[in-house]
């Protein structure tokens, strides 16, 4: 809602610049931006042609050569959960941060106050009934497949999040009734498990997240399993929490 002060400011601005001047400056700005973006595209294209033609160096060879020791057969999973597992741990932390920020902005700790949305049409309802079980099954398959072929926790988690979004669109999202602690626990689960496992290895005189040799595959599977659950829960919570109507401010009116 525009306040009185905003309206006064808008009126002041309308006086300061005629519509013609506003439109002209907007057009000049767009032309300038367009030319700049075009020039940038040419420079980047020259760089890309050079870069794509070049022999791959860096980490590629190293990543493929130590695949036998990594505990998995899929090099992408090996990079994600073995060589660069600290990065993956921090990326799960980014997901936790996004959910925390969403709750902070909505001034809530759970999603029980988010209003129901109108039930979808017949096609959407039927489609959800067919697709959601298949998606849950598909998530499990992708998780298992990730050890030896393209797939893994991130893909599986995204699929679970999408299943949650479909349930939300047909207002059958019973998970919304989870209390704040359970929901936040689920979102934080993989970040915490990753850290505890990593610190546990440190107690065994290894480095942070340095898997014991020969056991890497079991640890990777455990981490992937909890990562899938957390990613699915985080994506679903963000989808529900970004609901387009006010849902928390009536409960806790703000004074600032």
């Amino acid at each position: 809602m525009p306040t009185g002060r905003d309206r006064a400011k808008a009126a002041e601005m309308a006086e300061a610049t005629t519509p013609w001047e506003t439109a002209r400056s907007g057009r000049a700005m767009r032309l300038f931006t367009g030319v700049g973006a075009f020039l940038l595209a040419i420079v980047l294209a020259l760089v890309a042609v050079e870069l794509v033609d070049r022999e791959p160096g860096g980490l590629t060879r190293a990543a493929l050569d130590s695949l036998d020791e990594s505990g998995v057969e899929n090099p992408v999973t090996a990079v994600l959960l073995n060589y660069r597992s600290v990065d993956t741990w921090l990326e799960l932390g980014v997901l936790v941060l996004a959910v925390m920020a969403m709750f902070a902005l909505q001034r809530c700790t759970n999603l029980t106050q988010v209003p129901q949305i109108e039930r979808g049409g017949y096609v959407l309802m039927r489609m959800t009934s067919v697709f959601v079980p298949l998606m849950i099954l598909g998530a499990g398959y992708l998780l298992w497949r990730g050890t030896h072929a393209p797939g893994g926790a991130f893909q599986a988690g995204a699929l679970l999040g999408a299943a949650g979004a479909m349930l939300r669109l047909t207002s059958r999202d019973a998970f919304r009734a989870l209390n704040g602690w359970a929901l936040r626990g689920l979102v934080v689960l993989s970040f915490a498990c990753f850290a505890i496992i990593g610190l546990g290895f440190m107690l065994m005189n290894r480095r942070f997240l340095e898997y014991p040799s020969g056991q890497a595959d079991e640890w990777i599977f455990l981490i992937e399993l909890v990562a899938m659950l957390s990613i699915g829960a985080a994506l679903w919570a963000l989808f529900v929490g970004a609901h387009p109507t006010e849902w928390s401010s009536e409960k806790q009116p703000r004074t600032n």
Binding site: A78, V94, F154
Partner: peptide
């Protein structure tokens, strides 16, 4: 595999950042 691993995590993080 290294750029591919970055894309996989990047997509999920981008979706979360967009929601935020």
């Amino acid at each position: 595999p290294v750029p591919q691993a970055m894309v996989i995590t990047g997509i999920v993080v981008a979706v979360a950042a967009t929601a935020f």
